[in-house]
Design a binder for these strands. Structure first.
Ligand SMILES: [Zn+2]
Ligand SMILES: [Zn+2]
Ligand SMILES: [Zn+2]
Ligand SMILES: [Zn+2]
Lengths: 146, 146
DNA sequence: TCAATTGCGTTATGCTATAACGTGTGTCAT
DNA sequence: ATGACACACGTTATAGCATAACGCAATTGA
């Protein structure tokens, strides 16, 4: 009864907890910490941080959620469809960058091919094998800077 | 008696605590968490995390130390001398990137002009005002990948 | 001399993340 | 069927990272 429930879509089947966590993130208009997510889901039976962290781990693995390292918080993936650099695994995308407004909390997710390649070239030159790359720009969005 | 002690160098004068924290980081061959630094300095009278965090805040402000967001840890600045993009404030440097080996902990700090400008261009196009940019590549260094 | 500023030390607290245990439920080869 | 396995789940406890709030001491510069 705890197995993932398949859906008519092509996305990975999510369990109940995973769906609940994803829905909260997807509806949010700013990054959320695991504990904030937990509080939002108390009415749905969530009682402990691990319930959130376990769901987040899977959602991260599926590429449906991103972790913002500079905030210790999470956002639903919002990268544009039909991205370049698809790595074959369906929804997959290459390295992505985030612009985070420190005033309103809005996050813009984007991909820059050139940046990606520059960093890849550096790694190749140094014989470094990248596993995961984090790019986060903190600042003020257009609306808040005006 | 707690005022900064001036030195013969051009660097900002550091207080005793700031010097102790910086020395620990400068001698380390891997990033250190604030609590690890604290433990290293118990013999020098450090008793509480705030003593470390306050010193780190200043060292970050001086640009002598960097925070690795994906590790919640700190490293002494090791960017090459005579960098481009100097912003006028002496030691100052533009956005810097880190390659972090997940096996041996070694960190390489580098600056890539092209990446910097690409991200700057994106920001300009989106009317986003960057305050601080984080670039961290986690992976395996040449020695560990071999 | 009197504020304002800065650094310091201490205690307490809050936020973020994982360890370790056991349960239930599907899957699949035997 | 039945056992082994993988996986999701729930719970309690603990570990790791960071700051709030208080007061004191020294420096600086009106
Ligand atoms: Zn994405
Ligand atoms: Zn904003
Ligand atoms: Zn540096
Ligand atoms: Zn290494």
């Amino acid at each position: 009864m705890n197995a993932p429930v398949s859906t008519p879509t092509s996305a990975p089947a999510l369990t109940k907890n995973q769906s609940l966590v994803f829905d909260v993130l997807d509806r949010a208009d700013a990054p959320m910490s695991a504990y904030t997510i937990l509080d939002r889901l108390r009415d749905h039976g969530f009682r402990a941080p691990l319930q959130v962290y376990r769901a987040l781990d899977k959602l991260l693995e599926f590429g449906m959620v991103h972790r913002l390292e500079s905030l210790n918080a999470f956002v639903a993936c919002a990268h544009p469809e039909s991205e370049c650099c698809g790595k074959g695994h369906g929804h997959g995308h290459g390295t992505v960058a985030f612009a985070i407004c420190e005033s309103c909390g809005h996050v813009s997710e984007f991909h820059d091919h050139e940046v990606d390649h520059r960093l890849g070239d550096w790694a190749k030159a140094k014989n470094f094998k990248p596993a995961k790359t984090t790019i986060e720009i903190r600042g003020l969005c257009g609306a808040c800077a005006a």
